[in-house]
């Protein structure tokens, strides 16, 4: 890809790639915006920027991630995602073939999820002003009547349900980045969760207090966020948290805690105790929730500590980290 002179031809080339990959009636209309009618009820909107290195990793790439990520942010409000937009910052010199692969997987992800990308933009910037490609996606969705999930809704006694094994995405990316090879390949869990959410809402929508997708910072960051927003604490049971053996092995070698590792196809739900069973059953019946488990519960705690019962009966603090895991032990 080149930047500057000849920009017009280049712009058309790029547009062509995306239009072909995302193909739908809105894009075909060729307007600077897309019009759609909204169903009645509360709408949600979310936006996210995607920056990942490497761009391609086992189980996905930055494109599928950008589609799934925004769909999931909308789904965490128990909403049905309707439409997406996508914007691209592309570094000069970025291989066209790679761009085509990314666009293609975005198209597949969006069609698979039934959520079309109806508007977008591309910019090419000078070499060094970006790292390959950055993607920003936005989306809108509609919340079923009577549901209002809020970050401050967790109450002592509530159950914490996790939809499946943790750490897959972060370890897949890390092992690709560090050129590590494990006995069994670790594949990103990148997936759109709105189908799973629909099943949960049908089983016990009003019992769901709130949901989060534990992406960057892992479930440690997610639980700490909820704890401070709801002014409660969590007690988590280490043994109840599913971790794939290959992920556990990689975490051990790298010295990282799976609780701090990113996921892209998992959710954490806090549910009223009386609804937990039905919600869990519905999750387990869905392909993306087969390993779902109750991993802990909410407790009253002014300090908003997330504590994990360890195998020997003690409890340790599960903390969020400012960035990568820096050594701590003196």
């Amino acid at each position: 890809l080149s930047h500057g002179a000849g920009g017009r031809a280049m712009g058309q080339l790029i547009e062509g790639i995306f239009h072909k990959a995302f193909d739908n009636i809105w894009l075909r209309a060729g307007n600077d915006q897309s019009a759609f009618t909204v169903p009645g009820g509360r709408m949600v909107m979310s936006t996210d920027g995607y920056v990942v290195s490497p761009l391609f990793f086992p189980g996905g790439n930055i494109g599928s991630l950008a589609v799934h990520g925004t769909i999931n942010d909308i789904a965490m409000a128990a909403a049905r995602p309707l439409y997406l937009s996508a914007s691209f910052i592309i570094e000069e010199g970025f291989p066209l073939a790679d761009l085509e692969r990314i666009a293609e997987s975005m198209g597949v992800a969006s069609r698979g999820a039934g959520v079309p990308i109806i508007t977008g933009d591309t910019k090419v910037v000078e070499r060094g002003k970006a790292d390959g490609v950055f993607i920003s996606t936005s989306g809108v969705g509609v919340v079923p009547d009577g549901l209002d999930l809020r970050a401050d809704a967790a109450r002592p006694g509530d159950a914490v349900i996790l939809s499946g094994s943790i750490g897959d995405h972060g370890i897949a990316v890390m092992s690709k980045r560090e050129n590590l090879e494990f006995d069994a390949a670790v594949v990103s869990d990148s997936a759109a969760l709105h189908g799973l959410v629909t099943a949960m809402v049908e089983a016990g929508g009003r019992q769901i207090r709130l949901m989060r997708d534990p992406t960057r910072g892992g479930i440690a960051a997610t639980l700490n966020e909820i704890a401070s927003q709801s002014k409660v604490g969590f007690h988590i049971d280490e043994e109840a948290i599913p971790v794939k053996p290959e992920v556990a092995a990689a975490c051990e070698l790298l010295g990282v805690d799976p609780l701090n590792v990113a996921n892209e196809g998992k959710l954490v739900a806090v549910a009223a105790p009386e609804g937990a069973k039905a919600i869990l059953a519905a999750m387990r019946a869905h392909p993306l929730g087969r390993e779902a488990a109750v991993v802990g519960h909410v407790v009253a705690d002014d300090d908003c500590f997330v504590q994990m019962a360890t195998s020997f009966g003690g409890g340790r603090i599960v903390d969020w980290l400012s960035g990568e895991q820096l050594p701590r032990i003196c």
Partner: peptide, 10 residues
């Protein structure tokens, strides 16, 4: 090198 961060300390 500090392979495994805190894990190396243990």
């Amino acid at each position: 090198p500090l392979p495994g961060g805190d894990r190396a300390a243990r």
